[in-house]
Amino acid sequence: MVRTTRLGTSKRSVLAAVLCCGLAPAQSSLSVASKIVTSANDFLSSLDEGQRSKVLFEFNDAAQRMKWSNLPTTMVPRAGLKMGDLSGPQRKAAMGLLAATLSQRGFEKVLAIVEGDEALRVASGGRGSMFGRDLFYISILGKPSVKDPWMLQFGGHHLALNITMAGLDGILTPSLTAAQPAKYTVDGKTVRPLGAENDKAFALINALDEGQRKQAILNYRVADLVLGPGQDGKTIQPEGLKCSAMNLSQQAMLLDLVAEWAGIVNERAAAVRMAEIIANLSGTWFAWSGPTTNGMPAYYRIQGPTLVIEYAPQPLGGDPTMHIHTIYRDPTNDYGKKSIRR
């Protein structure tokens, strides 16, 4: 459902029409929310009493809500249920819940990140016990409901999905996606979990004219995420090129890039989110640090009134392009705080 609180009727109608025709699938918000709740209850039903007590938390459990990191779970322990401790059917039910909550592309991206960690485990040999697909955790805060707020968390090394379901809204912020290795092969096929985030950004920076690039490219190195894990509630002064100084084609490229994060969640929730980001596009900034040739390590940030995205290659003992961290935030609605108030 489109957020309607402050929109005029005509704009609301136009937006609704556009979203219905353009972005959102035919399913209603209620049916999407119902499907997610059903999947959550299916997962919970597959667990025994002890497992349920481990996976369920109070919705207001602030400590659990903020217990996420880019680091391996052996270093920064997560609570909830570990994938490696689930039976086959339980694991399938957990993945079913994730699939119902996310878009197909988002689900595939998450699987690619998880499998990347599995590839890291295999490549690390005896030193790989802190990596792998078995070391990802799932937790649920609150009682799954189409009416009352609840939250699904799924994460581990290089992944933290914090999805707040507030009525019919699905809020994905804050979430962290990352990849190491950023490129690996499965059955001879190359997988790049964050390849689109890289390629679309390089396409955008190279679509800017010289004057625009001069504004967008920062004159300093950015060695890490500024607003990564542990930096909830903070916002920094924006820099770079303002989107109002981009032409329509460049703005469309930027939105397409933003959709790599906003589109992780299911299509209905993503459509609402993208509409909000578009509404604030004129106040959104694009900043870049590093070379502009694809294949080289470069940091970028997209920041608007309701959006912070950072993409940061990590120079940790090797090729920075093979180790990427990203963060996705909404400073006005992280953990669904705005939606819950409504």
Binding site: K11, L248, A252, A275, S282, T306
Partner: peptide, 27 residues
């Protein structure tokens, strides 16, 4: 407030709609 941002965007609406559809096509 976000409301002001929406209102300030009024002249931008046709472009926004175009971009939305373009983004959808790209997707």
């Amino acid at each position: 407030e976000p409301r002001a941002a929406w209102i300030a965007l009024a002249p931008f609406w046709p472009a926004a709609i175009g971009m939305l559809l373009a983004a959808r096509m790209a997707v």
